[in-house]
Computed example of a mutant assay.
Amino acid sequence: MANKVSVIGSGNWGTTIARMVGTNCAEKSSLFEKKVNMWVFEEKIQVDGKEYKLTEYINQHHENVKYLPGTKLPDNVVAVPDVKDAIAGSNILIFVLPHQFVKGTCESIKDLVRKDAFAISLCKGFEVTENDLIMISDVVKNTLNISCGALMGANLANEIAMEQFAEATIATKDESQGRIFQQVFNRPFFRCAWVDDVTAVECCGALKNIIALGAGFVDALGMGNNTKCAIIRLGLMEMMAFAEEFYGCKNRSVFFESCGIADLVTTSYGGRHTKLGKLFVTTGKSFEELEKEHLNGQKLQGHQTAEKVYKMLEAKGPADVEKYPLFAAIHRVSQRQMKADQIFECLQNHPEHM
């Protein structure tokens, strides 16, 4: 029996993914059912003076005019406004929505998911609880009682929508599922490598958002590439050390896959965290204000992740905070507890070996 795929989410990255997945499902009829449902949070939009439901417009014009304008979707990608209908009958679930909505979405569909289903998360963030940062794949796995992997990488959605070559990292515990996901996602312009360390891959996707804020602070100060690259290098060191200390990720080679250093560099030069990190310093506005002005409904994760990371370090004692001076400094700048140019004072005696 062919696999049936559903995409849960329809922002610019979700729509880009649905475009690639839909094309692959149409081309690989022996592996996948052709129709791909894409769950779309229903909203009203105005196009040329006429009001549409977003799902109605997508299905009529094969374009997500709000989140990925100018890019055509294949005819077999169908926008569905009810997530329960969107996942009906599917055994492959692709989660690509803001991380803060994953838990509630999973709760709403947990009684309808096929017992043989498996999932993958493309959500770059953690589920933040009072005491911990939980992997989104674990949220999906524990709520739906199915296995869940992760896909992360240097993936700016608009560039991939234009079919500019990019890489990503797929992580699954089960290699056979990983190979199926490669068939789901791989395109001539999109290459996915497979690894088995889901936790390390997700740590990369979430922690790099903290460092990208720091890169934005550097831009706001008018610093050049030397300074930004120092932030990236030291940030990568702290990411690896934190993932090992708190999550047992000892295989540091994962951090040199696309999900690690490549995603960190890309985000630090072209991502929304860097853009808004710069504006946070130059305008004095809050992240919430900047989100409303610049992100078209999307959210940042970096400052919230930085706050939780700081609290986790603080709970272990002052010595642990001192081991991660860049994480600590970015958190303090994000909370207006210190000025952006004071970051460099914190880095003068950065630990050389973490």
Rank of each mutant, 00 (worst) to 15 (best):
C192T: 14
G317F: 05
E345C: 07
L54T: 07
V7I: 14
T169S: 12
M239R: 03
K250D: 12
V281G: 09
A161M: 08
N64Y: 04
M312P: 00
R19V: 08
I210A: 06
L112A: 13
I210H: 10
A328V: 10
N155T: 00
A329C: 03
N142Q: 13
T143M: 12
Q164T: 07
F256R: 07
I136T: 10
K35N: 13
E167R: 11
Y247Q: 05
L151Q: 10
Q301Y: 14
V65Y: 07
P318L: 03
H350P: 02
A306F: 08
R114I: 04
G22H: 10
K316C: 03
S108P: 00
M354C: 09
A340L: 01
D111Q: 14
N64F: 06
L112E: 13
D132I: 08
A329T: 03
H350C: 10
K72N: 09
M239A: 02
G317M: 06
N251L: 04
Q337R: 13
K103T: 09
G205C: 11
V309Q: 00
F287A: 06
N226F: 12
W194A: 12
S334R: 01
I94W: 01
E289M: 13
L73W: 00
V139I: 15
P351E: 08
A241R: 12
L264F: 05
S334E: 03
M38F: 00
A241W: 07
C229L: 15
K285T: 04
V7Y: 00
G224K: 11
N296M: 13
F246S: 01
N158L: 13
G284Y: 08
Q164S: 07
K34P: 03
T274Q: 15
E56M: 03
G70P: 08
V218A: 15
V195R: 08
T16R: 05
D320V: 15
I330E: 01
E159N: 08
F126T: 00
T15H: 08
Y247R: 05
A2Q: 14
G235K: 00
I231D: 09
K66W: 07
E167S: 11
L93S: 05
M312W: 01
G297R: 06
Y310W: 01
K308W: 05
V96A: 05
E289I: 13
Q298K: 11
I136L: 06
F344E: 05
K34F: 02
T23K: 13
G49V: 06
Q182D: 06
L97D: 07
E293K: 12
G297A: 02
I45N: 04
I210W: 09
M223T: 14
S10M: 02
F217C: 10
Y247L: 00
A212F: 11
A206G: 11
Q183C: 12
N64G: 13
K285A: 12
K35T: 15
A262T: 08
N3D: 14
D174Q: 14
Q60H: 13
L156Q: 14
S334M: 01
D263S: 10
P325M: 01
P351K: 08
K115T: 15
L97I: 14
G70H: 10
T305Q: 05
V5F: 07
V102T: 11
T129A: 03
Q337S: 06
T16A: 08
Q337I: 02
